[in-house]
Amino acid sequence: MSKSISANEVKEHNTVEKGLYIIIDNGVYELAGFLDEHPGGQKILKRVGGKDASKQFWKYHNESVLKKYQSRLQIGTLKEEAKL
């Protein structure tokens, strides 16, 4: 799981059909296959698809939740890009 994924690539995966990627801290997660399992429902995950969901995630979850699902859902890390 050493794949670096750009912020633009995450933005492109903003629907279930496109893969539904989100960012939590610097990790990139693919959630299309997790929608039915999410206790908070599908709607919130679809709303944050293609975006950095760190703020929303940490508001409702603790580190144990991230650790529980990380190995299954994390597909890479956010690629550091040069800022002009």
Score class of each variant (00 low, 15 high):
Met1Glu: 11
Ser4Arg: 11
Ser4Pro: 00
Ser4Gln: 15
Ile5Cys: 09
Ile5Asp: 10
Ile5Trp: 11
Ser6Thr: 14
Ala7Ile: 04
Ala7Trp: 01
Asn8Ile: 02
Asn8Gly: 00
Glu9Tyr: 12
Glu9Ile: 12
Lys11Met: 06
Glu12Pro: 03
Glu12Asn: 14
His13Pro: 03
His13Met: 08
His13Tyr: 04
His13Lys: 15
Asn14Tyr: 03
Thr15Phe: 09
Thr15His: 04
Glu17Gln: 12
Glu17Met: 06
Lys18Arg: 14
Leu20Trp: 04
Tyr21Cys: 06
Ile22Arg: 01
Ile22Asp: 03
Ile23Pro: 00
Ile23Met: 06
Ile23Phe: 04
Asn26Ala: 03
Val28Gly: 05
Leu31Thr: 02
Leu31Ser: 02
Ala32Lys: 15
Gly33Glu: 12
Phe34Lys: 01
Phe34Glu: 01
Glu37Met: 04
Pro39Tyr: 10
Gly40Ala: 04
Gly40Glu: 01
Gly41Lys: 08
Gly41Ile: 05
Gln42Pro: 05
Lys43Gln: 14
Lys43Glu: 15
Ile44Leu: 07
Ile44Gln: 11
Ile44Pro: 05
Leu45Val: 04
Arg47Val: 00
Arg47Phe: 07
Val48Met: 01
Val48Gln: 01
Gly49Cys: 04
Gly49Thr: 06
Gly50His: 05
Gly50Tyr: 02
Gly50Arg: 09
Gly50Lys: 09
Lys51Ile: 01
Asp52Met: 13
Ala53Thr: 01
Ala53Met: 03
Gln56Ala: 15
Phe57Lys: 08
Phe57Asp: 08
Trp58Phe: 07
Trp58Arg: 06
Tyr60Gly: 00
His61Thr: 04
His61Phe: 08
Val65Tyr: 09
Val65His: 03
Val65Gly: 03
Val65Gln: 09
Leu66Glu: 07
Leu66Trp: 12
Leu66Gly: 02
Leu66Cys: 03
Lys67Gln: 15
Lys67Pro: 05
Lys68Arg: 13
Lys68Glu: 14
Tyr69Ser: 07
Gln70Lys: 11
Arg72Met: 13
Leu73Gln: 00
Leu73Asp: 01
Gln74Glu: 11
Gly76Tyr: 01
Gly76Asp: 03
Thr77Gln: 12
Thr77Gly: 08
Ala82Asn: 10
Leu84Trp: 08
